[in-house]
Structures are given as structure tokens and as C-alpha cells.
Nucleic acid binder design. Structure first.
Lengths: 181, 181, 181, 181
DNA sequence: CATGAATGAGTCTTCATTCAT
DNA sequence: CATGAATGAAGACTCATTCAT
């Protein structure tokens, strides 16, 4: 499948270092076919991005909606991030590491995407309800997600050797410490 | 100066999207001269990386060595990171955002570079001395730096509007919360 | 209809700048259907050429055969050319302007086509009968048709603003002057 | 030389049928060099056009300025056209046959170029002075040049076998007949 | 038969690198 | 040494043609 092969290559080498012939070779789909599905290489990268983000959002909504309090919601987010990192590392890496400016001009940056906006809102509500320490809700959201995302980046780059599913709870504890009352 | 012009362009467009002609134009140095200083475009990017990292390391050593306890040392690191982010954003962005895999094969990744190894060591010692909570020192280091680095990334991408010199203390408090006893 | 849509496009953009997809779009006929009627794009262009020329020839014969003397015959030719130019400019442009070398290798060039051979013959006979000035019949035919065709070219390219049906008589007078006794 | 090789190929096959590799092969100049002289294939074709037209104009001015009356001027024009046709057929064919719309959007069409505008002016003046028959000066100019240009086209396409330098006088006589008093 | 998705050779163009001056 | 014109391999993309449905 083209989207999957393209994402794998984009993640491995970066957008500009991946040639259409390389995608042709890896996906088994001909140049012409690729250009009948996607109007350009840029369009292909955008669709990869959207599909990946949409899929993540769908899973995110599912998880978070079944949680009640602030801690449960943030924990559900973090666990989902860790799961995706382990189960579909290309997807996670495409979301966090790719320099999307290289090909996306009109798309929202990841930090403005729904999941991250929701994290901000969850944090803002948590502060209001007194479940979190007072302070700038945006900085609190940044701090919480910073712990999670940094761990993901180091896991994806191979620096972290253990599965995030194993060490995830300790990371969540650390992340939670940045914002709890 | 070539290194500076190259770094600015690499940060703006990414390694592969920057052509030698563009560097020639921006730096005012001729193609031939560039190729007499650097053996290839890849070599140029590596030297930019090393020079940037060396400079950061020198400042890091200066700052941290004058600190006594664990908190002071980590705080000195974070303040330095925030200062560089505000004063020389290209340098910071080149260190944290550039996909070095695109051109570096044998160089150490940032997370293994001296400053980050030292942070790990500082954290390890802090745990030993009882100044930090017990647990995996590596995960603790990741958590602390995660808060700092994530804030830097969002500042560099324009999402965070305030200077990190202003909101830095709140971020340091958050980061410290992940590891304190 | 394919031939008509193709001719319109060939006239507008030139043979090589017209793609089969463009003809498919404009004619509403599928790619497969086009390739079942015509063996190739070149063959399509040839059939357009032949059909256009055949149609012109049929009208030419009709007109000229009902004329008696040399002047009447040449005048009938010129009026027909002007009429086609105004009523079906694509047909005329395809006959006079298209660089047929671009796709025709074995077809007769326009200047050797029946109507033009007949003009030559009419002129030759006219000279013999003393209705035209003596001289090289070929050059005389070239001169007469030159005035007519040049006017057509400039009309088709929009340089001549008046309908050739209006200014045609003056042109015919000019053309006739080149060969009359 | 690139311009010359390109013109030869454009004349032989038409703009769209000539590839850059073909020009590289025929001119002996590398792809990169061509693109350092010309910004694009279109730009190359435009420069060929301008250079060819400029050269013709220079010779035209030289010839016509040394003529006194209307007949001499028009004769000088026609003789020049015939000479160029015989001596540098590519130049003449590039001026009269190429579909310049295929690559030129902002350039003046040939019929509006200086030489042809001057012919119109010469004819207009000739009518005023009583040296030419009264009537629409534009149609008269079209008629005169029609005879000349049509002969050139047929000579270039190989239909006319004799040198225009030989049969030129008869053609000029015919052309002159269209406009003389 | 008709369709139009798929093919891949070939197009224009860029750019890392070299080397004559 | 420094220069920058020249090289040509490789990239994104198009389109005439085929063939499974």
C-alpha cells in the first residue's frame, strides 16, 4: 500500500530524501498509479499525515471519553501514545518527528491538532476543578506532554531500550507530578 | 560566514531543501571556497552540528561547574537552554529539531552528547545523595529534560508566544517536580 | 465527436501539446474507444487531416465545376476559402497552419492536395487559352493563392478584423491582378 | 552553438517535439550549461526568436533605407526575404512557420514585427503619393507580402525547386501587380 | 465491445561536485 | 589558492498506450 510505504520511507529518511522511484520500489505501485491517487509528492505526504492523525484521533476519542477525572484522562492519553509508539512506531514517528513545514503549508501543526488541544482543555478544566495546581494551563499542558513526548522520541530513536508499555507508569507518574496539586 | 549562513538555511528549510548555490548566495563565499573548507555538503552539515554543540557544551560546563547542589545544576542547565533559545534560536533549533539522520551516520545523536550525558549523571548522583526521588535515573533525566525541551520546541515553532526567560521559572518548577523527593 | 474535438484542440495548442486525456475530456469519448477507432494519436491526427481535406475538396469540386472561365473558377475557389475561414475556422486553420510534418510522414502536403493541384491546372489552362498572362504557371498559381492564403492566415490569427466575406472581393481583385493579362 | 542547433531542431520538428537531450546532443553543450544560459526551454525558444528577428530587422533597415521610391523599397524587402530564404533557410522558416503561440505569450506576432509594420507604412505612403492604387492599405500590404511569403513557404517545404534568387523577379512582378496603379 | 486504471519511458529541470582559468 | 562555468546523474511529473474487467 502506497501510504504505508511512503510513511515508512518518510520516517526513515525525511520527506526530501525520499524519491518517487523509491516509493514505487517499496510499494510495488507504479509511478503513474501513484500520480493518479495523489496529485503530487506533497499531496501524498499530506494525505499520509492526515490519515495518520485521523486514526490517532479516533483512538484518542475512544479512550479519553471513557475516562472520568483529569488524571484518568491524561493517563489514557499517555497510555495510548505509548501503545501506538510500540505497535505502530512509524505512525508515531511521522506525527512527532517529521518536519511538516517541509511540505505542509496550510495544515495545522501537530501541537494545534485536536488531541493536543484537548489535552490543553483537559488541563484547563482540571485546574478549574482544583484537581491540578494553579498556574498557566498552557505551560502545564506543555510540561505534562513534554515528559511523554520526549520519552517517545528517545524510544523511537532507540535510546530507550525498554518498551514504553513497561516503563510507562513511571513516566506517567513523573508527568503527573508536573501538574498535580 | 559559511557555517552560520548554512545553519540558518538548514534550520529554515531542512538539510535537503538547501542547495549549495543558496549557501553561496547567502554567505557570499564561492562554491570553490566552500569545497576547499568542507569536503561535501554532508561534511558541512556535520561541522555545523559539531561547532554548535561544542559551543553549547562550553557554555554548559561554565554554568554547571559553578553550581553546587543538584537543583542548582539542573536549573543552570535549563536557564542556559532557555537563554540560547531566545538569543540564538538557530543554534537551538539546529540542535533539537534537525533530523540529523538525514546526513549524519557516524556522529553521536544529541541525546548522547556530553550535556545530556551529564544531566543523566547529575540526576544519578542526585538520587544517590537522596536529593531526588528514587527510581530509574534515566527515566528521571528524560522526564526533566522532556519538560524543558518540549517547551523549547514549542517556543521555536512559534506556538509559545512568551519569552522562555520569563516563563522559564514556572517550567523549571514543573520539570523539577518530576524528580524531586 | 472525436475528430471535431481533436481538431479544435490541435488547432488551439498544436499536435504535441494536446494529450489523449484532453481529447477524452473534450469529446466525452473514452480512451479505449479512441484507440479502437484510431491506432494511435498520429493516426487520429491524420484522419482529422484527411477528413477535413476531403470535405473541403468536395465543396471545392461542387463550386468550381459550375464555373465556366478561369476568372470564375479562381473566384469560386477564393470565395469558398473565405467562407470556410469564417464558418469553420478550425477546419481552415487545421489545413493551413498546422505543421503537418510533426505527425505526417507519408501523407501529401497541403500544397500537393487536389484543390491546389487543380488551381495549378486551372492557371495552366488559363495561360494556354490566353486568359492569363504568360509565364511560369506554377509561380502564377503560387502568387494567386499567396494573396488568398496570407489573408486567411492573418484573419485566423486575429490580425485582420473584418470578415473575409466583406473584404474578399478586394482581395480577389488583388490576387487576380497577379496573373491577369 | 546552442541557439543555432536549437533553431535547426525547432524548425525540423516543432517546439514541443524537440527535447532538451536532443539539443544537448546536437549542440554538444551540456544540459547544465544550457540551463545556465537560458532559464527554461521556453526562454531558449524566445531568445532564438528574438535573435533571428533582430538580425533580419537589421538587414532590412540597411536595405530599405538605401531605396528611394515605393517600388524600390518593396523590391528591396522581397529580395532580402528571398536571399535569407536561400542563405539561411532555418532563420526564414523559424520566422514564418513556427507556431510561436506554443511558447511565446508576450512577444509580438511576426505580422506585427517591425519589418511587417514598415511594409504596411511603405504601402500606406505609396498610396498617398499616388504610386499605388487606392484602397485599404492593410489589404494591399497583405496582398503584396502574401505573394512573397507564400513563395517562401513553398520554397522552404521543397515544393518550389528553383532558387528564389532566380524566380524572384517574376514573383516580385506578380506581387507588385496587386498594388500598382 | 467499451472502459479507464495502470504502466513506465521520457520530459524538463535542479544541484552536488569538479576543474580550467 | 579562489573562482564559478560546466557537468550529468537523478528528481518530480506527464502521457501514449495497453489490458483486465
Amino acid at each position: 500500500m502506497v501510504l504505508r510505504a511512503a510513511r515508512k520511507l518518510f520516517v526513515e529518511k525525511g520527506y526530501h530524501a525520499v524519491s518517487i522511484p523509491a516509493i514505487v520500489k517499496d510499494s510495488g505501485v507504479s509511478t503513474g498509479a501513484i500520480y493518479s491517487y495523489f496529485s503530487s509528492k506533497e499531496d501524498l505526504a499530506k494525505q499520509v499525515y492526515e490519515q495518520t492523525l485521523d486514526h490517532f484521533e479516533a483512538r484518542f476519542i475512544e479512550r479519553v471519553s471513557s475516562s472520568s477525572n483529569t488524571y484518568e484522562k491524561l493517563r489514557a492519553f499517555a497510555r495510548l501514545v505509548f501503545e501506538v509508539t510500540e505497535d505502530d512506531p512509524d505512525a508515531m514517528e511521522y506525527m512527532v518527528s517529521i518536519r511538516h513545514e517541509e511540505f505542509i503549508t496550510d495544515a495545522v501543526p501537530l501541537c494545534y491538532s485536536e488531541p493536543f488541544r484537548w489535552i490543553q482543555q483537559i488541563v484547563a478544566e482540571g485546574i478549574e476543578k482544583g484537581e491540578l495546581k494553579t498556574g498557566d494551563y498552557f505551560l502545564s499542558a506543555v510540561s505534562f506532554t513534554g515528559v511523554i513526548i520526549r520519552a517517545v522520541e528517545l524510544r523511537l530513536s532507540g535510546v530507550v531500550k525498554e518498551s514504553l508499555l513497561e516503563v510507562g507508569d513511571e513516566l506517567i507518574t513523573n508527568a503527573w507530578a508536573t501538574i498535580k496539586v
